[in-house]
């Protein structure tokens, strides 16, 4: 084909794709889609999957130290859910033509990122409460919005994840509520965890809209439905009331209800810290990645043994037939 004809075909394809997006029809794996749409989704979904899996680490530290059998069972179930969420998302990304091995390779090489929040340590039991309540709470706000994302497999994974996540947030809030109803030491621990997790939780929504404009492809193609600041405001508005109920103070002296906007105003977010952690200088970046690489390598024999067992069974079946 002549270059000119090729360009015409390309622009026809783009036009019919964008018409489909305009009708709010979901895009499915075999549908034609622009390369940039595919690339954006692979980046976003794999980052989301890696976040679920890396997110198992800070909580995993506390399984053996949970204060009761009840707490331990709940924490195990929650962490198993996070692993499951990672798998839903890896599967969704695989429908776009990238393999699981490639995604893991990109995580290990640093080409693919995961949520910054998991580069902070879980120092004590109150942190498990704060992670469930604030970190999962922020993730839910984002994920509820993504249930309406334009790519079918991603949207379906989000619907499934949202159904499961609300237990995560409630178990975290219950831990915080119990500590706030306890001794002065316990209340201090809970407030300390709140102070350390509040700002990183706000950063989970990403840069302000002024830095990350709404006009990009992600909005045009309905991958993203609401802006970072809109989602952040939603999270703050509902969390402030929950903090008040159990007597926790939000560590932001500028936090104030703004009647005109119908949202809380909040103090400045320390974006230097945000970029510093993204660039690998957070408290746990190296630990998280070393751990993932080590466990992945140590698990290789299990996958090899499974393949060897399958090969042996197939051989036996073949011999019994002949």
């Amino acid at each position: 084909m002549e270059l000119k004809e090729q360009t015409a075909v390309q622009s026809d394809l783009l036009k019919s794709f964008e018409e489909k997006i305009g009708r709010d029809d979901a895009i499915e794996p075999k549908d034609k889609m622009p390369d940039a749409y595919r690339k954006h989704l692979i980046r976003q979904i794999s980052q989301h999957a890696h976040s679920e899996v890396i997110g198992m680490q800070p909580e995993g530290n506390w399984i053996t130290r949970a204060p009761s059998l009840r707490a331990k069972q709940i924490l195990l179930a929650k962490i198993q859910d996070e692993g499951g969420h990672g798998l839903y998302l890896y599967s969704a990304a695989e429908t776009l033509g990238i393999s699981r091995s490639e995604m893991i390779e990109q995580l290990h090489s640093g080409k693919a990122k995961y949520s910054n929040i998991f580069n902070y340590p879980a120092l004590n039991w109150a942190d498990i409460g704060a992670i469930g309540w604030l970190v999962d709470g922020a993730a839910i706000v984002n994920q509820v919005s993504l249930q309406r994302t334009s790519y079918g497999p991603y949207s379906r994974a989000m619907v499934r994840i949202c159904k499961e996540e609300s237990f995560h947030q409630r178990q975290g809030y219950e831990i915080m509520a119990k500590m706030m109803a306890g001794t002065a030491d316990q209340r201090e621990m809970a407030q300390d965890a709140m102070n350390r997790w509040w700002w990183p939780a706000l950063m989970m929504f990403g840069p302000h809209d002024s830095e990350s404009p709404r006009s990009g492809d992600a909005f045009k193609w309905k991958i993203k439905r609401q802006s970072n600041d809109e989602l952040r405001a939603k999270f703050i508005d509902k969390t402030v009331q929950q903090a008040e109920v159990i007597g926790l103070t939000i560590p932001d002296k500028d936090l104030k209800w703004n009647e005109a906007r119908g949202h809380y105003d909040h103090g400045p977010i320390d974006w230097n810290e945000f970029y510093n952690v993204i660039n690998g200088n957070g408290p746990c970046n190296k630990q998280r990645m070393d751990h993932h690489k080590r466990v992945h390598a140590e698990g290789a024999w299990v996958r090899e043994a499974a393949e060897a067992y399958r090969a042996k069974k197939e051989k036996q079946l073949f011999q019994s037939k002949n």
Binding site: A77, Q80, G84, L87, Y88, E164, A306, Y309
Partner: peptide
Amino acid sequence: GCVHASDKKMALQNARDTYTR
């Protein structure tokens, strides 16, 4: 959805663990 497994039995078990918790 989808799971990874080396044979039928593992596929069923992984599907149970991943999609019917």
